[in-house]
Write a protein that binds this DNA or RNA. Structure first.
Lengths: 247, 247
DNA sequence: CTCCGCCCTTGATCCATGTCAAGGATGTCA
DNA sequence: TGACATCCTTGACATGGATCAAGGGCGGAG
């Protein structure tokens, strides 16, 4: 799993899906193919990119910013089922309609590929299909890891788990991994956190305050988080594992 | 998703992964290949097939019975992250160690394939890789569906969701789908249900009694369930969707 | 600068579910 | 047949997190 986290761009720095999506071993012919079908789109914070059930004729990779996948019940209860960070992939080859609502939780740039040609490319280039399979398996692991968080952890552990995941991911992208003290900006509102954790906004706020009081985190404003001791945070998360990566 | 549920065996009734796993379009050469690397294993109810972290040198498909994938925290809290019903696939090509503990929840037969040759076969037969990708995407959808259950549903809704999923899956395998009244045997103890739903055993028991009192289900003994009205059950589950299928 | 709206915090109270405890039903083995 | 183990049910009580409610802080628009 580790090697998925650092995009390998050395051989194709212009590959439009150099982000985690496909990357690594693209050859020139594939690059040309991809170049032909890609386009970029930007979204403002809070903007909904697509609604569950919408026809979806592209797949995409997050270039910068954060997006969320959510499910909503008839009565309005909502659950976030995936958080898309830079290098994450969204969209399902072979499926016409979006299964989840996709929303930009902060300003966002995506690199999109028209679906039909992308699917053709997959059928004709086995190693890209293989790469997609690996990615999907990683997402499945992350989703299952999250099931443990949702089903069995306390509110405090849930918050710590979320912070730990974002901190670690952030550190890796910034090449700061291995440091025990980290600082980062939360890309989520308290409400978005509550939707991800299966809590209410108030409980999230209270537990953030509690973690702050206990010196597990330091808050600089509302969104800037300093983690003086990652090991301590992981401990609070009740986490022995290396932490699933958000879809 | 629908078409995944009914194994398509018409062209290869002897294909050892005729269950949902690969199925459908195997040609003779592949059959021979598979035949060469497969073997069957049986397990008794309650038996653990492998522990998280164990070296795993096979992948497998459930022939009969039910198995569960579980994660456990250091302090013993456990969460089931997948329920493997007949035709489900377990194991991850390319991964040496098991990520989850796999346990037989009732007597179980699996059809196993040695991992290395299986991986080779995947690389050399693109449509099998493609099939695996589709399956994995379905499992991902199921896992995300379950995140909504774990994060946002009440105990009563959780129970109804689980019963609805098992009932529907059972009906499909028995070619009874479309009927509004169904009967089936629960393949899980109350404790296994609680591990899947993120509840305690006692809460599961109480909510089963409540659903019985309200005529949503009829209990014949402890394990035999009769659902007089599937629509009613789905309604109790708070479920608009067609219900994710357990991995 | 001031007002407004959004996001966040905190308090008081309630309730769904967890926890602890007792006992019932069913199947197995001697 | 009786003793025992396993699985399940039910009751009494505790509590974590939800709900309802009030207000603080900050950034953007005028």
């Amino acid at each position: 799993m580790q090697d998925m986290m650092v995009p390998d761009m050395k051989d194709c720095s212009d590959c439009p899906i150099r982000h985690r999506a496909v990357c690594a071993r693209c050859d020139t012919a594939e690059l040309a193919l991809l170049e032909d079908i890609k386009y970029y789109r930007s979204f403002a914070a809070g903007q909904t990119i697509m609604w569950a059930g919408d026809r979806m004729d592209f797949v995409a990779s997050v270039v910068s910013g954060v997006a969320s996948l959510t499910q909503t019940m008839e009565d309005g209860r909502t659950q976030m089922v995936g958080l898309l960070l830079p290098s994450d992939f969204v969209g399902r080859p072979g499926r016409e309609a979006a299964t989840y609502t996709v929303t930009a939780t902060c300003d966002l740039v995506m690199c999109c590929f028209r679906r039909k040609p992308f699917e053709q490319m997959i059928s004709s280039t086995p190693h890209i299909a293989h790469r997609l399979l690996e990615m999907t398996l990683d997402e499945l692991d992350a989703a299952r890891e999250w099931m443990l968080v949702l089903g069995r952890k306390t509110a405090r552990e849930k918050i710590a788990s979320l912070l730990a995941i974002i901190a670690r991911r952030d550190a890796i992208l910034a090449k700061n991994a291995e440091q025990n003290s980290l600082a980062f900006d939360l890309p989520l509102t308290r409400e978005a956190m509550s939707d991800y954790l299966g809590l209410t906004l108030e409980t999230v706020s209270r537990q953030m305050s509690a973690l702050k009081k206990d010196d597990v985190i330091i808050l600089d404003g509302k969104r800037r988080i300093i983690v003086p001791d990652m090991d301590r945070l992981m401990d609070e998360a009740g986490d022995d594992s290396d932490g699933g990566f958000l879809s």
